[in-house]
């Protein structure tokens, strides 16, 4: 199946780089790996200060929440011609199985419906393949949540 191209390829690349440059994402070491069609993929490498349970070495669920939130937001921008500020309205994570200690976490997200005011997204987190997910996330975003531009004019 061929993937639908991003509405604005340059904007998606810019948004991907911008969103992972936010301080919290830098703290987690989040990387934007690019996109297949309108689906971006992010990565967070395993690190001992991101662990939730020190006895098992499993990453904290909060790291999953952050990668899902960020990746889903980038997926929304794949549908936009121009960047608008968006705000997460709600987010649900299903923890399908424990993450494996020592392994990087990847997240691939898609915006499956962009309505006039709300964007609807779904995301999977995995180690090796999206077909073997460790977590699933659904979210909604409020479009145009703030008039303050996120990018300097003409940046994308």
């Amino acid at each position: 199946m061929t993937e639908q191209a991003p509405a604005n390829e340059k904007l998606l690349a810019t948004a991907g780089a911008l969103f992972v440059s936010f301080p919290h994402c830098v703290t987690l070491g989040m990387q934007y790996l690019g996109n297949v069609g309108r689906k971006p993929t992010l990565k967070v490498a395993w690190r001992d200060d991101l662990v939730g349970n020190p006895a098992s070495g499993v990453l904290h669920g909060g790291v999953i929440t952050s990668i899902v939130d960020t990746c889903s937001a980038i997926a929304v921008t794949a549908h936009m011609d121009e960047l608008e500020t968006i705000a997460t309205l709600d987010l649900r994570i299903d923890y399908l199985k424990a993450a494996t200690p020592g392994k990087a976490i990847y997240c691939t997200a898609e915006c499956y419906r962009l309505a006039s005011q709300i964007a609807f997204t779904r995301a999977v987190c995995y180690h090796d393949s999206p077909d073997d997910p460790i977590a699933h996330g659904v979210a909604t975003f409020m479009r145009d949540s703030n008039p303050k531009p996120m990018l300097a004019e003409g940046a994308a």
Binding site: P23, G62, V63, T65, S66, D69, T70, K148, P149, M150
Partner: peptide
């Protein structure tokens, strides 16, 4: 998260 507002990252609040 968003530095232009600035606002705490939504994922961080979740964590």
């Amino acid at each position: 998260g968003n530095t232009t507002l600035p606002a705490l990252h939504g994922g961080l609040i979740g964590g």
